[in-house]
Design a protein around this nucleic acid. Structure first.
Lengths: 369, 369
DNA sequence: TTGTAGGCGTTATCAG
DNA sequence: CTGATAACGCCTACAA
């Protein structure tokens, strides 16, 4: 029976570039006088002692041969055989690198990259979420992410149906930012509740007895969390809470006039806490109104900001408050994703924010009657 | 004759999670009631009319099956079979997202992402170049990039041997930034020569007859290019060039004193041109010394900066000069890389800089004797 | 201790 | 028009 002859270049279009092929394990094996499998064994010697059943002499011969040939394993083949490609996806619903740096995911990506590197993963950036790029825009645009071992999602407007499908299929998915509406979707977020509570606690510690929160009129989880923590902080300090402690403004800058601030202060308020938003309106309103009212900041009243100051006012005095740990969030998301990819069901949804002393809050001396 | 039975999970550790593995072409085929090969044919339908010998009905069945299964081709397998990935690699020799945003590749990446999206490629960020991550630091660290169809390299310190290997093997590689030392390495860079020449031309047009360049004492291609363009600009305008027109400083801020500026002006110099460097020292020195010398800027002398002003002086008057088109550079690099991947030998190494009028240069009235 | 024999998922060729 | 089938380069259970 005649063996079918090997085709010269079977199933392969002639390489357009005349690519010279690199040495493979088979050639190393030939040079070392061993089998290809042995080469593989030697090259992937388990560092954990186990399975290292290769004679030192053979080992050296193989190593020498590999070196002299300049052998380098083919990553594609390696990954194919390992049924895993060490790739984590990153999918954002706006351009990952928007022209407007302010709105970018950059700070998160710093953490994402670092942690991915530490864990031995490379990153796939799926493009065209906005720009209408790589994946045809069809309803299965999201499906491209399956090429990675798992995928990280950033951004607000997530196509629920698509994502649900991925989750249902058991594809490892992590969302950066709290997102509890979607059953079974893993996420990591910042612990705004604790952080806000801590800020209030610190103000109380400084002697403040009447503290108000200035927030915008939206229903984002990030806002509710802060309010919850704020009110909880008041309660724990035995301070008056309730609706009176919260100023909910549609347009903070317009509504929080100098007069209003003066009235509040006259009424006994000694500290203002602003929530952080995209626009930074709440903080801008508070600090502006206080200044206009002619009140000195750490002296007459104390201010705090539940988040990071907007970049364009970064030259102003640093407000007491907390930093959203964007690096840490990115890193945590990657850790969680990697755990899911590895089949462990670890979860670490909430990441602590870092308290920031700042210079806008000081002790409040209780005035004697 | 008994066929050897397939092992259940041959050569593969039992999946710890029992995670459902990604669907393969075989399953799509089964669902569609065709052979796996047919699936492959349908999915890679040649757009160039040829070989599209598949009945429309079958085609649809296959497509539907693939969609309903969420099928996505395995990039590793695809690569291994000598096809394309639709993946472009990005490899930087420092962290791609460094903590210090100033030194980041962000502006380039904006262009890279946009162009990749437009061309239908996703991006693979190879991590750990610095952080010692994914690819163990071995000599084969670079070779991971072979998973992609081609790779973009950013950064100064490139392991020459490794890169050379990739290039020699015909793997499509593009370096972002001029790099002619390495034979055969494709690159894209900014056209500093033309841009600098244009700045001089503009100054000459404004009536300036004695113009000097202040540069630092390094040998970076970016510096030499600017000087070359500067001198060429002088020559074309029929102005005095030669070494006298170039102030080469080891420490510009220290060497370019107010006195020296005064002396130069007394000698007939009416315009100063500073090169752009990492530190921005040349520009800082020039603008500082002129100010100290009590000279008004667009009035007494004109200034120009061959590049973008350092961010920390961005509130100062915008200097005449040019912008390094970082977006465009990133985009051009991707275009070139994509062309190489497609087997075309296109090249567009030099990208034009954008002239910036600024407010630091004005007409020079020739004083009557 | 080493060699043998699949098989990972795709692509492309070649007979039916 | 479709179904086998042979690689691609590597990994590993199992036999010798």
């Amino acid at each position: 029976m005649e063996q079918p002859r090997k085709r010269a270049k079977p199933g392969r279009a002639p390489s357009p570039t005349g690519r010279t092929s690199r040495p493979r394990q088979a050639e190393v094996a030939r040079l070392a006088g061993v089998s290809q499998a042995t080469v593989s064994l030697v090259l992937n010697a388990r560092s954990d002692g186990k399975g290292a059943t290769i004679s030192e002499e053979t080992r050296q011969r193989v190593l020498d041969a590999a070196r002299s040939l300049g052998y380098v394993p083919d990553p594609a083949a390696r990954r194919l055989a390992a049924a895993r490609n060490n790739l984590l996806g990153v999918f954002s619903f706006t351009a990952t690198f928007p022209t407007d740096v302010q709105h970018s995911y950059y700070p998160f990506l710093v953490g994402v990259e670092q942690e991915a590197a530490a864990l031995g993963y490379d990153l796939v950036l799926f493009t065209g979420s906005s720009s209408g790029g790589a994946g045809a825009v069809g309803p299965d645009a999201l499906s491209r992410v399956r090429l990675a071992d798992g995928c990280l999602f950033l951004g607000r407007h997530v196509p629920r149906a698509e994502l649900k499908r991925l989750v249902a299929d058991g594809f490892p998915v992590v969302h950066l930012g709290r997102r509890e509406e979607l059953e079974g979707l893993a996420w990591v977020g910042a612990d705004y509740v604790s952080a806000s509570r801590d800020v209030v606690a610190r103000l109380a510690e400084l002697g403040h007895r009447r503290i108000v929160l200035v927030r915008e009129d939206d229903e984002a989880p990030a806002s509710s969390d802060r309010q919850e923590g704020f009110l909880d902080g008041l309660a724990r300090a035995g301070l008056p809470g309730g609706p009176a402690a919260v100023l909910r403004c549609v347009d903070p800058v317009a509504e929080l006039t100098a007069d209003r601030v003066r009235a509040l202060v006259a009424d006994g308020v000694t500290a203002f806490v602003a929530e952080e938003t995209d626009t930074g309106a709440a903080w801008r309103a508070v600090s502006g109104a206080v200044r206009e009212a002619g009140l000195s900041c750490p002296g007459d009243v104390s201010l705090a900001l539940l988040g990071s100051p907007p970049p364009d006012v970064s030259r102003e005095p640093v407000p007491m408050g907390f930093e959203v740990p964007r690096h840490a969030l990115g890193a945590a998301a990657v850790r969680l994703l990697a755990a899911m990819v590895a089949g462990q069901e670890a979860d670490e949804p909430l990441v602590a924010c870092e308290f920031r002393d700042g210079v806008t809050a000081g002790p409040h001396e209780v005035h004697l009657p």
